[in-house]
Design a protein around this nucleic acid. Structure first.
Lengths: 235, 235
DNA sequence: ACCTGAACACCGTTCAAGT
DNA sequence: ACCTGAACACCGTTCAAGT
């Protein structure tokens, strides 16, 4: 898939479970097949449905067999995350004049790719992706951002995207329909409105505003704030 | 503790496990005692050490007894989160001229309170706190922010604080010393430096910058970006 | 009536026994 | 040598049997 072999990813001691290298012989079970099966389960049933037993079952084996290819569940999830990051199209060469639009567009694409996999965002957020697909992404980001802010912004922007994707996918693992979700938001508004106004005057007054706007609008708002803030710091 | 009774918090149907109301009689086991015990375990051993069995044990009972006061683990964790949010001092009346500094200071305090409890940030991030302590916090935030951005910023700012607190506490549950953490960052820098420069020229070149700065600096950077971005959108 | 030991239905992971 | 059934040490939650 790639030309050169990358050096081993650095790991914290507590997570230094190295993948058991598979032998030379071809086998039906492979890291790739395992990751694919796990991702299918994420899409169909949510992240919590991914158990070693469940993945093994959908591959026609027992859980113990997975440990031939993967050091444990932690690494299995990492493979799934890398796979999804690999689905991202890498944008074209940047035009420094247009960095603000390019950053926004790139992050939109990233969010969409994550949101396409139910509540996988939770798994992405809980780790620092360092596989080559993730590296390609940060390579793009470094190219695109102004020099003055690039170092920290490379952390901040993916943090925002994964955090909001996580937050907005909180109930995606469970089978919550849009109608149920809409009703939940209504209940939230009524809850704010019904609070004692002497203690929470602002929350009561702004109840409608606080619960307005869909996920896309909220994402775009944060994007705008971040890019404008970075622009302000870059000048 | 508070004067008026709040209306019941709205819940998604999937989480509609109502707390079993305790009877009038005084008991040794109480929701408060359970939350306190759980928080102690978080501080001492990390969030993952909080199991129903473990909490019950430290209270001198069996796990089943907790279900008299708490609908399940989900609610138990919610109690712990509310308790920690309650530790936050609510800032004084705002001065509209100084909202940028006030917001920054308020969020710094919030981060510090969260970070004081190991990896509890993960639990805070995974839910939308709606208890009265959380409401007092958003009441303050609404008061402090300029009208033009208040609705969405009330989501965005806590999202940032809890997300970065979560990220920076990722290994706080495990027993990772500062030395080990420093070594990890060094390994990360060397990893970036050792990447093939023809594929990742920017990452290699910026390896030192990308891994520079401690958690405080990164937090402050994001704070500055957000506040400046909000200021730009407010005018 | 309240409380709780024991059981149930799950986990991730290991390992000895199979081929 | 590779593979895997069964076991181990855990979970959260339930419930019947106790007091």
């Amino acid at each position: 898939m790639n030309a050169t072999e990358l050096p081993p990813v650095p790991r914290l001691p507590s997570r230094t479970t190295q993948p058991k290298r598979r032998g030379p012989r071809e086998r039906a079970l492979s890291r790739d097949a395992i990751a694919a099966a796990a991702l299918e389960i994420v899409d169909a049933e949510g992240l919590d449905a991914v158990t070693m037993r469940r993945v093994a079952q959908s591959l026609g084996t027992g859980a113990a067999s997975l440990y031939q290819h993967v050091s444990g569940k932690e690494e299995l999830i990492e493979l799934v995350v890398e796979r999804v990051i690999g689905e991202l199209p890498i944008p074209a060469e940047p035009d420094p004049q247009r960095w603000q639009d390019e950053v926004k567009e790139g992050l939109r694409v990233m969010r969409a790719a994550i949101a396409a996999h139910r509540d996988l965002a939770r798994a992405i957020f809980a780790r620092i992706p360092l596989g080559e697909n993730a590296l390609a992404g940060s390579e793009w980001m470094i190219r695109t951002l102004p020099d003055q802010v690039v170092a920290y912004a490379c952390d901040l922007l993916p943090l925002y995207v994964t955090a909001i994707a996580y937050e907005q996918s909180l109930y995606a693992g469970e089978n919550v329909t849009p109608e149920v979700m809409g009703e939940f938001v209504d209940n939230m508004r009524r809850y704010f409105e019904s609070l004692p106004p002497e203690r929470f005057p602002n929350t009561v007054a702004l109840a409608a505003n606080l619960t307005a706007g869909d996920d896309d609008e909220r994402f775009e708002f944060g994007l705008e704030v971040l890019v404008r803030g970075l622009a302000a710091m870059a000048e």
